[in-house]
Nucleic acid binder design. Sequence first.
DNA 1: TATGCGTGGTG
DNA 2: TCACCAAGCAT
Length: 343
Amino acid sequence: MSYLSTQLIRWHKQFGRKDLPWQIDTNPYKVWISEVMLQQTQVQTVIPYFLKFIKRYPDIDSLANSNENEVLSYWSGLGYYSRGRNLLKTAKIIQEEFDSSMPSCSEKLESFPGIGKSTAGAILSLGFKMKAPILDGNAKRVLVRYFKVEDPIDLNKTTKQLWNIAEENLPNKECNVYTQAIMDVGSLICKRRNPDCIECPLKKKCISFNEKIQNLLPNKSPKKEKPIRQLYWLLLQNKHGEVLLENRNSKGVWEGLWTFIGFEEPISRENFQDRLPKGYELLEEGLKLRHTFTHYKLDIDTTLIKINKDFQDLDNNKVWFNTEELSGIGLPSPVSKILKTFI
DNA sequence: TATGCGTGGTG
DNA sequence: TCACCAAGCAT
């Protein structure tokens, strides 16, 4: 057993997190759901989503028997919606081909949609108590500082190197404790900014700490500037108070979710009166908000139009929703915000 | 392999 | 205020 794993396991028994919702009465299914929710997402954000999700989908069969629209409604606001869609796809595969029980084999797990090497490792170690490595952002940061890895961590080459380090340093027993420990130390002590090295169980042998360069690592490649795109949303409301939404069934951002009808040019009386039925009322112009994605920014300008008569001219992916129905479908965050403002 | 994919929190 | 981040995966 290495100093690294021995120290981390000892530390976790005294200071580690043991009462997160997915750690209570845990099983491989809960580990899977929580790990997917936690991808690129903070613990405090995930907790309420996890609790609601597990209550509705307590096991693989309940999830596999659901449908994409309902699963996405439980994912609304959490982001990276392909995670939600892949959860459903994988549940169906496990139900059909694995008798509704999670396989305890890394190759099979990694073959499922939405499960990569790190999530598979977490399911094996935390869920099945097997010896398996993880390499999430926390573990990366701990290993980078402990071993003084100076290459930028966003490079594939560095990630490969860190996977080797992660595997070489696994303990032969209590790997589940080790896995939770390295994530906890990474998240609570070995923080990106201002790490609490004094509290760290690894400080005696941490190369970065001993060279006093812990604040200089990890390194990252220089980033690119984000482009800004304009989007004009048309919020149509009929005389029953229902709202017209369009399902985004094409690949790309917010796939499978419902949004307002969008345009790249401004919406005005002049260029819209011939596209709408007579008797509409333009109520508000210019609710503006900015939404930032990882790779670009979106400046959204919404126009609310109330329609006084029935308006049926819809293609098959446009639907009128009443307030109650809106809570049962997947909505991107800015759509929810705008609905709260207007409806 | 470099990029697309969300969102809420934070210093 | 705003740039950057947080338990990655897919292509």
